[in-house]
Write a protein that binds this DNA or RNA. Structure first.
Length: 417
RNA sequence: GCGAAUGUAGCUCAGUUGGCAGAGCCCUGGAUUGUGGAUCCAGUGGUCGUGGGUUCGAGUCCCAUCGUUCGCCCCA
């Protein structure tokens, strides 16, 4: 074995990249239409940024970050998610004076995890963040946008939108106490993992996949029944808007978020088609994070979607035959090849898309490559054509051929299919 | 970090109780001396993941290791 990729990373080869481009272009188009503009933040940041934004005790920060000291001794981490850097950029550039501020990003993220289908150590997310819009309108619109994107990509079957409210600082603390009391009573029936969670993150127990824990979770007091007036209004408003937009959704009172910074609205789009890695898009409101990170008090909401998972869902959906296009110049004989290079450049100067056969050889071989390159027109330049300063134009769809003078080609090209 | 399966040609995979390394697809050439795809014929291509061990002999059995996949965990 020669040098191979690092564990958990992979190449996206040309066969696969059209699906990725479709993802990216569809997302750009829809995000833009909803009023979002692109932001590109660095791929690495000070480790402290993620520790504070994502939560120092979260699994992501504790054991999944690619962290290293740079040559100046600074602790640097490859970004494990997108929101922290966007919040940092928001604060650093004083953008609270430009509200509302709506941005999208797409790009690689890094987490040191055990690789699995749809889960890589370098993976890609695209997401949106919206600052300054406190009401449920922003939440509902964001979900509508996510679903529109998935619908446009035709991967909206086998998907469900789940929502929940996580409350806010005021109502979550008393609820948490209630929940803790309840769970401590059931401690004996919880899995080992969840007994551990009692200390660290009791809310997370609600989302445990263990059957016994789930049975207990269903009996537990629910956050949505203990919301303060403000949070309850917000959640009701959201559901009214979703209903009004005819977006199918279910309330999942057991859904909690992995990252610490969320409050009020949480949402998740899941699929049954990807095994254990079932989350396709997830997001929520994080009204307190900007202030916590040292900025003004600015409400915000965002989401991210996993592009590898979208690409997997896209697989097989687009059995589209790549359409034939462009010119492919093949030459026979040394003199013709030399002339062909010059002609190709001239034709390109005039705006034609001309691909030259790089390998030469028999005409049969060159035509085969032209076919595989999905060229629409083949330009044949052999000894005869060279002598009479013409080129043979062959349409690869119907096989029709015609002979043209060199300077006629550009004038003719507009008339071709 | 834990548990399990798996690794043979570029790809998908056969390979029997341990006894000569195989097929299909792809690729290249020919049938067609200047014409792609379809058909037929022929050909190239292998450190059997890697390193040890057992054996007269290992793709096959044993140990280790790396990768991949599935589950746990985590999450997009």
């Amino acid at each position: 074995m020669t040098i191979a990729t690092v564990r958990g990373v992979r190449d996206i080869l040309p066969e696969e990249s059209p699906a990725w481009r479709l993802l990216e272009e569809s997302a750009r188009q829809i995000f833009t239409a909803y009023g979002y503009r692109e932001i590109r933040t660095p791929i690495f940041e000070r480790t402290e940024l993620f520790a504070r934004a994502v939560g120092a005790t979260s699994d992501i920060v504790e054991k999944e970050m690619y962290t290293f000291a740079d040559r100046g001794g600074e602790s640097i981490s490859l970004r494990p998610e997108g929101t922290a850097a966007v919040v940092r950029a928001f604060i650093e550039n004083n953008l609270h004076r430009s509200l509302p501020w709506a941005v999208y990003y797409m790009g690689p993220m890094f987490r040191y995890e055990r690789p699995q289908k749809g889960r890589y150590r370098q993976f890609h997310q695209m997401g949106c963040e919206l600052f300054g819009a406190p009401g449920p309108l922003a939440d509902a619109e964001m979900m509508a946008m996510v679903l529109r994107l998935l619908r446009q990509l035709r991967i909206d079957d086998s998907l469900t939108l789940e929502i929940n409210s996580l409350g806010c600082k005021q109502c979550r603390a008393p609820y948490r106490e209630q929940l803790l009391t309840f769970l401590q009573g059931q401690q004996a029936h919880l899995c080992a993992n969840c007994r551990d969670r009692l200390q660290r993150n009791p809310l997370r127990i609600l989302d445990c996949k263990n059957e016994e824990c789930r049975a207990i979770a269903r009996q537990a007091p629910m956050m949505k029944d203990h919301l303060c007036a403000g949070c309850a209004d917000h959640f009701e408003g959201l559901q009214g808007l979703l209903g009004g937009m005819a977006l199918p959704y279910t309330v999942n009172p057991l859904m909690v978020r992995g990252l610490d910074y969320y409050n009020r609205t949480a949402f998740e789009v899941t699929t049954t088609a990807l095994g254990a890695q079932n989350a396709v898009a997830a997001g929520g409101r994080y009204d307190g994070l900007v202030a916590e990170m040292g900025g003004q008090t600015v409400p915000a909401i965002g989401f991210a979607m996993g592009m590898e998972r979208l690409a997997l869902l896209l697989e097989g959906k687009q059995a589209e035959s790549s359409r034939r296009q462009g010119y492919y110049l093949l030459t026979v004989g040394e003199a013709a090849t030399e002339q062909g290079v010059l002609l190709a450049e001239q034709w390109r100067n005039a705006g034609l898309a001309v691909q030259m056969d790089w390998l030469g050889g028999s005409m049969k071989a060159q035509l085969r490559r032209a076919d595989r390159a999905a060229a629409l027109q083949v330009l044949i330049l052999g000894e005869q054509e060279l002598a009479e300063q013409t080129v043979l134009l062959k349409n690869m769809q119907d096989g029709e051929q015609r002979r043209l003078a060199w300077d006629q080609l550009v004038a003719t090209s507009g008339l071709l299919p």
